[in-house]
Every structure is written in C-alpha cells, then in structure tokens.
C-alpha cells in the first residue's frame, strides 16, 4: 500500500465542472488522504509544520487543480514557497522528500493539438510544467507524467468528463494498491483515462 496524499486546489470550486466531480469522487476513495487546500487555508495562512508532517507521512503527493495561465492556482505556489523549505526539501540536510513521487492531475481548457509549435499555445504542454518538474527534481522526488484532461470546457457535454472522472478513481486506487506502473509511462508526456498504466484486473 502506497500512502497517497491528494492536494486539491480550486479557488472557484463552486463553478467548476470537471474538477469538482473529480474531487467529489476522490473524497470517496478509501485509504488515501484528501486535502482541500483552499478549504484548509481560505486566508492563505499555510501551516508549514502541519504540511511538512503530512509530506513525511506519505509516499506519493498528487496535486489536482485546473491550469491557470500555464501554471497552478496561486495557493499551490504559496504552498511550495512555504512548505518546501531549505533544509527540509532541498539544500543542506534537505532530503526529507527524497524517493517520494510527485504527480499532477490537471485540466486544461485548450485542446491537445493546441500545445504544439504550430498550435495557438505555441509550446508542448510539458514545457509549461518544467518549473514543477524541476521542483520535484531538486527535492529528489520522482516527477510522474501528469493525468490530463484537455478541452475541459467541452468535456461535460462530450462525455469525456465522466470518463476522465472514472479513470481518475482507477488511478487513485491503483496508486494506493501499488498497481500503478509508474515506470511504464515514464516516457509519456501525459497520461489520460485511455492510457492508464494499470494491468487489467484478473
């Protein structure tokens, strides 16, 4: 059993379509720890000690949030700035997170094909995640390919949303049960509900 810590961050939770459904489903998964960051810290007064203890008590840290301006919602940045302290997460003696895994579950409004040199987003999707990837690396953590839903605004009407939420629950339970094959998708840029590296149940 891997100990999974899920940070959910959405300042507009009330207006969310996909993320809200994902969070509601994730809350019902047993044996993982679910933290609503905006619910826990509505005034951005993050409790550093409490968060560091949480990190120490888990093997996999997964951030679930929408993409805002090619990055995370601001509270996750605040969390990084405060919790990933020198001497704890990096630098001299900062090896407390070594060997753990960091993963993202993101929704993006733009379609997958926009994230190319010719697309209107101009860069591959993973380019926008390089700061987070490097953050994980500096903390000696493994950065697993993110679980992504593109065209998230169209997803509820196209039926993609439901599939994405279903895949999300499978992903969480697989990580919890050590059935998620991180190595198999290492070379992939992103993972979707169709490409989950989970063996078919016998």
């Amino acid at each position: 059993m891997a100990r999974l810590l899920l940070y959910y961050a959405h300042p507009g939770h009330k207006y969310s379509h996909v993320n809200k459904a994902m969070a509601d489903a994730a809350r019902r998964v047993d044996g993982i720890d679910f933290v609503d960051l905006y619910g826990a810290y509505p005034r951005h007064n993050i409790d550093i000690d409490r968060e560091q203890e949480r990190l120490l008590a888990h093997d996999v840290v997964l951030f679930q949030c929408p993409m805002f301006w090619y990055s995370t919602p601001s509270l996750i940045k605040e969390w990084q700035d405060l919790v990933l302290e020198h001497g704890f997460a990096y630098g001299a003696g900062g090896d407390k997170l070594a060997g753990k895994t960091m993963m993202l579950a993101l929704t993006a409004a733009g379609p997958a094909d926009a994230y190319t040199a010719d697309g209107y987003q101009r860069f591959p999707f993973r380019t926008f995640l390089t700061p987070l990837q490097q953050t994980a690396r500096l903390c000696k953590m493994r950065f697993a390919p993110p679980y992504v839903l593109f065209s998230s605004l169209r997803a509820p009407s196209s039926g993609e949303a439901a599939l994405h939420v279903e895949g999300y629950v499978k992903l969480l339970t697989a990580i919890r049960d050590d059935r998620y094959d991180f190595a198999r998708v290492d070379a992939h840029d992103v993972v979707s509900h169709q490409t989950l590296p989970i063996p078919i149940e016998a």
Partner: peptide, 9 residues
Amino acid sequence: DRGWSPPSL
C-alpha cells in the same frame, strides 16, 4: 464570480 469562473464555451 469574477476571477475563477471559466469562460463560456
């Protein structure tokens, strides 16, 4: 609502 409400389709 302003701020984090998604754009319309």
